[in-house]
Simulated assay, not measured.
Amino acid sequence: MVKSADNGSVSVAPFLKKCYDMVDDDSTDSIISWGQNIDSFVVWDPTQFCV
C-alpha cells in the first residue's frame, strides 16, 4: 500500500518495500525473481521466501 503524507511525501508499506528489494536483488533469484516481461514476479521457492 502506498500512502501520501500531508507534506507530499510518499510512504510505502514495509512488506512492499521488502518484496521489491528481494525481487530486484540478483542474489535472491533462486527464491524470487522478475517474470519474463518484468511486469510480475515469480516465487520459485515458497519455503525460503517465507523464512
Rank of each mutant, 00 (worst) to 15 (best):
M1T: 08
M1W: 08
M1G: 14
M1E: 11
V2I: 11
V2Q: 11
V2S: 07
K3V: 13
K3M: 13
K3Y: 08
K3F: 11
S4A: 12
A5F: 05
A5M: 09
A5W: 02
D6V: 10
D6K: 15
N7E: 11
N7K: 07
G8V: 10
G8S: 09
G8R: 11
S9N: 11
S9F: 07
S9K: 11
S9C: 08
V10G: 07
V10M: 09
V10R: 04
V10N: 07
V10C: 07
S11T: 15
S11Q: 15
V12W: 04
V12L: 12
A13G: 09
P14F: 14
P14D: 14
P14W: 12
F15E: 06
F15V: 13
F15H: 12
L16C: 14
K17F: 08
K17E: 09
K17M: 07
K18W: 05
K18I: 01
K18D: 10
C19E: 01
Y20C: 14
Y20S: 14
Y20H: 15
Y20K: 12
Y20R: 15
D21Y: 06
D21L: 02
D21P: 10
D21S: 10
M22H: 05
M22A: 15
M22Y: 06
V23G: 02
V23C: 01
V23Y: 01
D24W: 00
D24C: 01
D24V: 04
D25Y: 00
D25S: 01
D25L: 08
D25R: 07
D26M: 03
S27H: 03
S27L: 05
S27G: 10
T28A: 03
T28M: 11
T28I: 02
T28Q: 13
D29C: 07
D29L: 06
D29E: 13
I31T: 08
I31V: 15
I31Y: 00
I32Q: 02
I32L: 00
I32F: 02
I32C: 02
I32V: 13
I32D: 03
S33V: 06
S33R: 10
S33K: 09
W34R: 06
W34A: 05
W34Y: 07
W34H: 12
W34N: 06
W34L: 09
W34T: 02
W34F: 08
G35D: 03
G35V: 12
Q36G: 07
Q36S: 08
Q36A: 04
N37L: 13
N37M: 14
N37C: 12
N37F: 08
I38T: 15
I38N: 13
I38R: 13
I38P: 01
I38V: 12
D39W: 14
D39A: 15
D39C: 06
D39E: 15
S40D: 12
S40E: 06
S40Q: 10
S40I: 10
F41E: 02
V42Q: 06
V42H: 08
V42K: 09
V43Y: 03
V43G: 03
V43C: 04
V43M: 04
V43L: 01
D45S: 10
D45E: 12
D45L: 00
D45Q: 03
D45H: 05
P46H: 03
T47L: 08
T47N: 14
Q48M: 12
Q48W: 00
Q48V: 00
Q48K: 04
F49M: 01
C50T: 04
C50R: 00
C50V: 09
C50I: 02
C50P: 04
C50F: 00
